[in-house]
Design a protein around this nucleic acid. Structure first.
Length: 108
DNA sequence: CTTATGACTTTCA
DNA sequence: CTGAAAGCCATAA
């Protein structure tokens, strides 16, 4: 069951088109668990090495489009770089990186 | 098995 | 409208 949830999340994240971003709640909802946004974040946190390179985890952010990454292993600068590489404009507000959900939010 | 924590979200005051 | 607290799911200890 958890493994299935993982697979769903991976599939959903992998289905995010280039130049678009999605929120944890959205991914969780699409995975069948609207209240498991935290788990989505956890899944992306424990991504295995090969998957971290295959899955565009950088396109998954919180509901405000802000990168709330507190992990030192997941630098916001790296995510910003990856998003910019995908064609997503990452803005900076008060030292917090965020994306225009109105323009870059993935709407399946 | 119980407790604590987390890349979040939603609701109450 | 803003701020704080609880909730939910899964993993780690």
């Amino acid at each position: 069951m958890t493994n299935d949830f993982y697979q769903k999340i991976y599939a959903l994240v992998g289905k995010i088109p280039k130049g678009k971003v999605a929120t944890y709640g959205q991914i969780a909802a699409l995975a069948g668990a609207p209240r498991s946004a935290r788990v989505v974040g956890w899944v992306l946190h424990i991504l295995t090495e090969p998957q971290a390179k295959k899955v565009p985890w950088q396109r998954v952010i919180n509901k405000e489009g802000i990168i709330s990454t507190t992990c030192e292993d997941h630098p916001r600068d790296l995510q910003k770089m990856l998003l910019e590489g995908d064609g997503v404009e990452v803005k900076e507000k008060n030292g917090c990186l965020w994306v225009d959900l109105e323009k870059y939010l993935w709407k399946p």
